[in-house]
Write a protein that binds this DNA or RNA. Structure first.
Lengths: 233, 233
DNA sequence: CGCAATTTTGACCTGTTTCAAGCCAGGTGG
DNA sequence: CCACCTGGCTTGAAACAGGTCAAAATTGCG
């Protein structure tokens, strides 16, 4: 079950530097002490909010990984974005619309729940917040465009190679990194079946281009993957 | 060739009501008279800006239709958004990034070119502009998510039916409406080949579900199309 | 150890692309 | 005014990528 762990305080927040409140000056942090969003824990697959629900809060992810998923009436699904610590999501209420997707944790997570009304007021008063939110929306729009290119113009192996390269970027392309997505979740993200994902990964392991141990992955031959991936620009 | 037609004046702009300046009070319009963006004409397929170019201006479309296209190094392309009159595009410069896509007119167009530096200043001074831009970004993000679902989770016929229904919505689903996209442009948008698009459209014409004359289209049996489309919610 | 869940693999099938003609409408020039 | 050309659209046949279904292998876990 989800559990409220108490109230958050921006002043002492460990991940504030990664959030939309990063640029707020110390003075402002004192000033907005009345703003105490709830800190909430969710376990894996325990939905934070459902597609279609009225959107009265946005969320900032403090720990873990969340997938934003859209579902078709016939049950087919598509992951439209992965959320990492520091990222915020669920702003549909700002335009008076219900949530456009469901938010489902990939593992145990901790979020900071931000009532939109209060957030709106803060945003008005502090241009730094305003600005940070704007930048993130534009960035997300760019990422969404990139993803549409992946889904619309690339083949299975190209999408998968490109995904692995992007995923491993933080470790410079030659270290081990956690891959907390199951085969079927990778499939949901890339518009492929679990079998297709598994086949290519197995094949590339046999080729010696990647290796995997206990949910961690390591790219050995990025040249080959890069070539497969149809990398843009 | 593109041609500059002069300077725009928000006060007398015919499409201001549809733009991000819609909510500005009359008083503000007088106040910002120094803001005179260029009005520019482009002919069909004459690129407004290229993917990768430094982004120093955003644009508001005054007339016509624009496609935002991403291109892979191997030449494959994907239309990531269609822009209609009143819509703005090309804000990548706000986060210091080059354009993430190319903007190419589908027909003769007229745009209002907004220098980002000036727009940023206006946005700071006038919360109405700020707010209107925010709403549009959120809306575009939602539409992008919808499109990812289309591309990732739907079959060819489902994508096409769903596209036609959305396109014809403005005329209440039983009038004639302009369809200024060629088969190959529809394909680029939906991640399909021109042949696949043509086959389904021809088939549905034979079934008597749609008709088409001189670039205009008319849905006769929306029930059937709706069923095909896997309509969400 | 033994069970359940996930992943892998194989065989087969289907939807979509690819390649190749043919068609049709609109525009041009003889 | 008509033959011709051009570009977009349609249609068919064959190839192929990826999906589906089913079974086996592996992994994680109590």
């Amino acid at each position: 079950m989800s559990s409220i762990k108490g109230k958050g305080h921006c002043r002492s927040c460990a991940i504030r530097q990664m959030s939309i409140f990063a640029q707020l000056p110390e003075a402002a942090l004192v000033e907005i002490q009345h703003f105490q969003p709830s800190i909430i824990h969710f376990s894996a697959n325990e939905t934070v909010y459902h597609q279609g629900e009225a959107a009265s809060c946005a969320y900032t992810l403090r720990q873990g990984l969340v997938r934003l998923v859209k579902t078709l009436p016939n049950g087919r699904t598509q992951i439209v974005r992965l959320i990492r610590a520091g990222d915020s999501f669920g702003f549909d209420g700002f335009i008076g619309e219900p949530y456009n997707h469901s938010a489902i944790p990939l593992c145990e997570i901790e979020v900071c729940r931000l009532p939109l009304a209060e957030l709106l007021a803060l945003k008005r008063q502090h241009p730094e917040i305003e600005n940070a939110m704007m930048k993130r929306w534009i960035q997300h729009l760019r990422e969404a465009e990139d993803m549409m290119l992946e889904l619309g113009a690339k083949k299975a192996s190209e999408r998968l190679a490109s995904f692995l390269i992007r995923w491993c970027e933080p470790v410079g392309l030659n270290g081990w990194i956690e891959l907390p997505l199951s085969r079927s979740e990778i499939g949901e993200l890339l518009g492929l079946t679990i079998e297709t994902v598994s086949r290519f990964i197995s094949d590339w392991k046999r080729q010696g281009w990647i290796e995997e141990r206990q949910g961690r992955i390591h790219l050995l031959d990025t040249k080959q993957l890069q070539a497969l991936a149809c990398v843009d620009d």
